[in-house]
Nucleic acid binder design. Structure first.
Lengths: 345, 345
DNA sequence: GTGAAACTCTGGATCGTTCCAAGACATGGT
DNA sequence: ACCATGTCTTGGAACGATCCAGAGTTTCAC
């Protein structure tokens, strides 16, 4: 029988290895083996121990296990900054996919908060206190600060987003080929008969933005279409998206617009709304990210959908390898997005 | 000097309490006190220890601390099911606010995944392995299964959402008064001169839906307006929102519609789009949740915005009390939402 | 100068698990 | 019988922190 520890208490403390061992009539180590290396035990012993485990509802204490094995089975993920007034909801879906993928390999996700002004805030404490086994970094397009720093601290991590500014980075990463995304978006519009297809993207210093733009550019030229006066570069906000659309609609009168984000696409919609133009009939629009907004706005915005579920799975896979083999250096994985066609095109 | 532990290794193991103690020339316990009860130390000793801590970059090992104190400083949060094709993005903002609020009191959030088909999946394992100190439950409108079960397991938890089906529940909770939300939404439309204001809500068996509906109902009657033929109840999806709007626009020709969710509001928008009616000019629409969709769709949808940041803070406050005093029984906290007015009204 | 109270600091035990090295037990060949 | 050879099981030590009880030191009133 399990001996009650702190006497008097009504709420029973969770059973320990020792409790199970006593009930099953074996030693602690045998129970530990039953849990972690069942094939070391003789079949009948294993059955007996298993029975005791089930009976007591035993579950290894995570803190004790972590202390001994130096592994917490937690992956740190810094809460991305929330962007009000934009359509950027990709992180939501990514976090969801990641938590799900991680769960399948026995990992949980530790969400932490960091001061948005300091891209490194929060990492250090978790690293020093060995609270997590590894991190997932998501905002690589903001510069390589996080990854460089983590690397210098010999922390284990994988990143969703390629190491734009560090060609020599050795950590595993997964990214989505959004140049390709822009290409299929543009080709989709060409197929639909459009020839004057505008691009509304981000400022030139955004590598991410330039990459997407190149997809549009290549598709246009591959089909012998001119791009003159059809490209616009601005900030990722609705108001600047609207301004860019206003300007380009006045000047060049394109029949279709490809936008570097759903946020910019919404800017375009604002412009159309004001001009009383019908989305999908008078002007076609394609966005990026397949946000809830793209999914729900009538008549639906055609959008480039990044395969976040797959990205999460790939990251978890890389993470497993990394944690098993500290020296593991994976080649980056580039995934192809798909186009979700809706009424806007 | 700290003695290197596992010889040969290049990557230094994190410093321990003992390392700090040795460097500062005090005992382990004194270092522990310096960290946890600094006022127990003499000023000069504290300074010396602090210096050693800084020099080594010491941070208490979380696993060891958890093991001893039986507290992980982690709050469990089950990843809410992701709803594609809807405008329900409230959870995103809530999780964000919660992580931020929790961080301020030294808690981190452990995100875990549970099979959507089983509302209890995932809780048990974390509870048994003492991985978290408490849970935050969010889907209370789906029935009291989770809270009842947690209560029976003597788990500590708070809930975002009142215990609809358990009037005798003892756990702390925080909720948003959305009857009030519907009321101010309706009154806003009345102020704007509307008299025929329709309600598009959820099925009768949704207590949450009926509550919101009552706000509309009271506001209408308080102003002597009829509600006959103006209420519609359906599912929370775009297509059924559209169907409901179609029916009610044909039959009763309201000039304004209050919707129980932004998703339903988007359904209404689809209906308007098809009828070539202008949102905000021909027909006014108000939604619930202040989702990204409401924020970005031109010309913006007026929406009832739940104070999620405040809710998160209240929950964390309750959690602190609960963890300090296990018998703590707080009265529920009801928060008032505000109306964010946009072009749709 | 003495004693007691208050303040500081210390060493050993402990939380629940896994690592380690060795003991107990069967099995099989000589 | 005996010893090698595995297979299975065991008790003690360790992970790094905090709890606890007691030892050492200072402070201060008398």
């Amino acid at each position: 029988m399990a001996v009650p520890r702190s006497g008097g208490h009504i709420s029973a403390a969770p059973p320990t290895l020792a409790d199970v061992a006593e009930l099953a009539g074996v030693s602690r180590q045998t129970v530990s083996n039953a849990v972690n290396n069942p094939d070391l035990l003789r079949a009948d012993t294993l059955a007996r121990v298993q029975e005791a485990i089930d009976k007591l509802g035993y579950q290894p204490n995570r803190a004790a296990r972590s202390l001994r094995t130096r592994a917490s089975h937690l992956i740190g993920l810094r809460m991305p900054a929330l962007q009000e007034g934009t359509a950027n909801a990709m992180m939501d879906r990514f976090v969801h996919s990641f938590v799900e993928a991680a769960a399948e390999t026995g990992y949980h996700v530790l969400l932490f908060y960091g001061d948005p002004a300091d891209p490194l805030d929060g990492y250090d404490e978790l690293l020093r206190s060995t609270a997590v086994d590894a991190f997932v970094v998501t905002d690589t397009h903001l510069g390589g600060q996080q990854t460089t720093w983590l690397q210098s601290r010999r922390a284990r991590f994988v990143s969703f987003g390629r190491p734009w500014t560090q060609p020599d980075a050795k950590h595993p990463w997964v990214d989505v080929d959004l140049a390709y995304g822009a290409e299929i978006a543009t080709e989709h519009l060409i197929e639909r008969g459009h020839t004057k297809i505008a691009w509304i993207g981000w400022h030139k210093d955004s590598l991410l933005g330039e990459e997407r733009r190149s997809g549009w550019f290549h598709a246009m030229h591959a089909h012998g279409l001119s791009t003159t006066g059809l490209a616009s570069r601005t900030e990722d906000s609705i108001s600047s998206g609207k301004a860019a659309a206003d300007a380009i609609l006045d000047e060049t009168q394109p029949t279709a617009l490809v936008c570097a984000s759903d946020t910019l696409a919404m800017g375009v919609l604002h412009s159309l709304f004001e001009r009383r133009l019908r989305l999908g009939e008078d002007v076609a629009v394609v966005g990026f990210d397949d946000s809830q907004v793209a999914q729900t706005v009538p008549p639906g915005i055609t959008s480039v959908r990044p395969p976040l579920e797959e990205a999460a799975r790939e990251l978890v896979k890389a993470l497993e390898e990394l944690l098993a083999t500290p020296s593991y250096a994976a080649p980056g994985v580039m995934l192809k997005p798909a186009l979700t066609v809706r009424g806007s095109s």
